[in-house]
Nucleic acid binder design. Structure first.
Lengths: 187, 187
DNA sequence: TCCGTTACCGAACATTCTGTATGGTAATAA
DNA sequence: TTATTACCATACAGAATGTTCGGTAACGGA
């Protein structure tokens, strides 16, 4: 990829992120973005069809990475079956959130948090599905599997959301403990 | 209130609702709304400052009513303490959703569902807070109260969302049963 | 180092939507 | 009946969108 392309794309991403941290998404204009990024109008449209596609690409970069990493972790049932004290995948996610580039936590706690929490939830669902697939654990509760997968994903994202809204006072370990206590009866 | 005012306001609400059921909120223009409602441009702005305020007013009408009704119900702990078989407030909500005017379920399951689920959640939180206030039930779990209030509210809304996304195959009673099973360990 | 390619810029453009203003008309409430 | 007022049609300025185009310079391969 041409260095100029990378630079422009990166400049737009960074500018967009900066704007998202202080302004509401829907009142950010393409004009705002190219002013902040200091690129030409035509350049923006050469990279992204619309503002919405820019958001989509940003989110895929943000959550795609964090979820893919967690995908490689051992599945939940290893934790129980072999007696090893592996950290739960959820604790891993919480720790990862703090170390991510482009300040993912800032976006998740900005005034645009709903947008990003939504993307987070969607991606997390895939992870939860593979984590708990074929463990048989979920079936014991006699509730539909995708109902539970959805419930667990949503609950985690909302736990993170609550955490951020209250100033991230708890440690990742404490928060993971909260979360485990909530879904423990189900898995 | 002047009859003409009521008619215009109602026409705008109805047109807006109709549009929301098929188009994405953000690409609905004021022009679309006044065309559908068949009112003048100036009339729209005499009633609503912006499209966003229209949405806000619509949501307050939709959820304000449904929540206020439920507010008058006996609190959850009556159910347990006096042994009466009163329906849970959640079952009541589910039944109410189907009978509401202006087709609230259509909006909750439209492509704009996220917007309305969000409003639903916000309003529900108030209800849950008063329902479980001072019952002491929540404190037994040793989790922060507003963490639990948030969790219960979100879980209910997501349960409804899941229900709609799967064609509302379950009866309100079955769904309430699902939901109770999920939060039962906490309350 | 040279050269063809290509990303970028600045500027201009038509188009669409917004929110406001105005003067005339007709429905309303008292 | 009469004063009020909500409404309409129209026009308008301002802003944002998405596209086009010719010129410039950075790039990567040879």
């Amino acid at each position: 990829m041409d260095r100029r392309q990378r630079k422009s794309r990166e400049a737009i991403f960074t500018a967009f992120t900066r704007l998202l941290e202080k302004q509401a998404y829907h009142q950010i204009t393409v004009q705002d973005i190219i002013d902040e990024a200091d690129v030409g109008r035509a350049t923006f449209y050469a990279h992204f069809e619309t503002k919405e596609y820019l958001l989509k690409d940003l989110c895929e970069e943000l959550f795609g990475h964090i979820i893919d990493t967690a995908m490689g972790l051992p599945h939940e049932h290893y934790h129980y079956s072999c007696g090893m004290t592996t950290d739960s995948v959820f604790l891993h996610l919480l720790r990862h959130l703090r170390e991510n580039d482009r300040n993912i936590l800032a976006l998740l706690s900005s005034r645009n948090n709903e947008i990003f929490l939504q993307y987070f939830k969607t991606n997390l669902k895939k992870l939860v599905k593979t984590q708990f697939a074929d463990t048989g654990k979920l079936k014991e509760s006699k509730l539909p599997e995708d109902f539970l997968v959805n419930h667990i994903s949503v609950s985690f994202v909302e736990t993170v959301s609550w955490w951020l809204a209250h100033g991230t006072k708890e440690t990742p370990e404490e928060l993971a403990e909260y979360f485990e206590r909530i879904i423990a009866p189900l898995v």
